[in-house]
Simulated assay, not measured.
Amino acid sequence: MSQKSTVDLMIDDLKLQIMNLSGDRATYRAIATNKEVKNKQLKQEIEKLKKEIEELKKKMTDSKTEEVIEEPQSAE
């Protein structure tokens, strides 16, 4: 039975470390991709809500303008 040399053991250990790091890297990349997709979705939702707010503000302004225009007419 031949014993592995220290160098061989070190090489095996380094191979194992590389394999583990590769797995970790893949996991982190998947998490980062998932976060990027979620971030993009949230940005789109924010833009949609901003547009809705602007539309509501415009409707409120238009509604107030109509009330002011209608008010003098009803006084006559």
Results as ranks from 00 to 15, higher is better:
L21I: 08
K43V: 06
K35H: 11
D8W: 03
A75C: 06
L56N: 03
T27F: 14
E70F: 04
Q44I: 11
I18V: 15
L42S: 01
E66A: 10
Y28M: 12
Q17M: 05
E71A: 12
Y28S: 08
S22V: 09
K15E: 15
Q44Y: 05
E66N: 05
N34V: 06
A26M: 06
I46S: 01
I46N: 03
S74R: 14
E71C: 04
Q73E: 06
L14P: 04
L21D: 11
K4V: 01
M19H: 08
M1P: 00
G23T: 02
T6A: 08
T27Y: 13
K35G: 02
D13G: 06
P72Q: 03
K59E: 12
M19S: 13
M1R: 03
V68H: 04
N20W: 02
S63R: 07
N20C: 07
M1N: 00
Q44T: 13
E66L: 11
K15I: 14
V7A: 13
I46A: 05
Q44R: 07
G23F: 08
E67V: 04
I31S: 09
M19L: 09
D12N: 06
V7S: 12
E55C: 02
E36L: 14
N39T: 10
Y28W: 07
K64Y: 01
N34W: 08
E66D: 08
T61L: 10
K43Q: 10
T61A: 06
S2D: 05
L49R: 08
K48H: 12
V37N: 09
Q41K: 14
Q73C: 03
K58C: 03
E54P: 00
S22T: 15
K64G: 00
A26S: 09
S2L: 11
K59A: 09
T61S: 08
D12L: 01
Y28N: 12
V37S: 11
T27V: 10
E55Q: 06
V7D: 12
K57Q: 02
Q3R: 06
R29W: 00
D62R: 01
L42C: 00
I11Y: 07
E52S: 01
K51R: 00
T33I: 10
E36M: 12
P72I: 05
L14W: 09
E36P: 01
K38E: 15
Q41C: 10
I31K: 12
K4T: 05
A26R: 09
V7E: 14
I53P: 00
L16G: 15
K35S: 12
D12A: 03
D24K: 08
K43Y: 03
K64F: 02
A30F: 07
V37Q: 13
Q73T: 05
K48A: 14
K4D: 09
E36K: 12
E67H: 13
M60T: 07
T65C: 02
I53E: 03
Q17T: 05
K51V: 00
Q73G: 01
R25H: 12
V7C: 10
Q3D: 10
S5Q: 04
E45S: 13
M1C: 02
V68K: 04
Q73H: 05
K35P: 00
L56R: 02
K35L: 14
A75G: 08
K38H: 08
M1K: 02
K50C: 02
K48Y: 13
V7K: 13
Y28D: 04
S74Q: 15
M10C: 08
T33H: 07
T65I: 07
L21Y: 09
T65E: 12
K40G: 02
Q3Y: 08
E47Q: 06
E52A: 03
K43H: 02
